[in-house]
Amino acid sequence: MSAINNLIVKVGRSVGGVVGTLYQAGRDSVDTVIRNVIPFMAFISFIIGLILTTGIGDWIAQGLKGSASTLPGLLIISVICAIPLISPLLGPGAVIAQIVGTLLGVEIGKGNIPAQYSLPALFAINPQVGCDFIPVGLALGEAEPETVEVGVPAVLFSRLVTGPLSVVIAYFASFGLYSSK
C-alpha cells in the first residue's frame, strides 16, 4: 500500500512541479512584456506616427538615404558609434540603436534604402552595444577591480576596430539577401 501511496505522491509532485513551472514561466513572460516591451512599443509607435504624418520623415530620409544605402556611409555611422568617448553615451538601454533601427526600418519599408542593406545596417547602428555596461557586466562575472580598470578601455578600443569590421562582414554576408533575380 505504501509503495502505491509513494508513487501517487511522487507523480502528483512532479506534475505539480511542471505545471507550476509553466505557470510561473507564463507569469514571467507577461510581466516582461508589460514592463519592458509594451512601453517601448508605445514610444516607438508615437515616433513612427510622427515620422509618417509630418515632414520630419522627409529630411530624415534625405539624411539617411545617402549614408545608410552605401557601404562607406554605413562604415561612417559605425565608426561614429564606436568612438570610445561616444559609445558609452549611446549605449544605455540600447535606446538610440532602437530608435535609429526603427527610422531605418521605416525608410526600408518605403523603399528608400535597399532591403539587402538591412543586414549591414543592423551592425552599423550597434557597435556601441553594452559599452555603458562594462563595469557592471564585469562585476557580474566577479572580475577583480584591476581587471575592470583594464577591461573598460580594452573593450572600447576593440570596438573601434570590430565595429566597422562587423559592417564589412555583414555587407559581404548580405549578398543575395532580398535581391531579385
Binding site: 516582461t32 512584456v33 519592458n36 516591451v37 517601448f40 516607438i44 538601454g93 540600447a94 540603436a97 532602437q98 530608435i99 535609429v100 533601427g101 526603427t102 527610422l103 531605418l104 526600418g105 521605416v106 525608410e107 526600408i108 519599408g109 518605403k110 523603399g111 534604402i113 532591403a115 538591412s118 545596417a121 543592423l122 547602428i125 550597434n126 532580398y178
Partner: peptide, 19 residues
C-alpha cells in the same frame, strides 16, 4: 525582449516590403 526594436525596427521595414 527589452531591446527587441534594434532588430524589429529594421525587420518591420522588410515585412512592409512583403519579404
Amino acid at each position: 525582449p527589452g531591446e527587441l526594436f534594434v532588430y524589429v525596427g529594421i525587420a518591420t521595414g522588410i515585412t512592409q516590403l512583403g519579404y
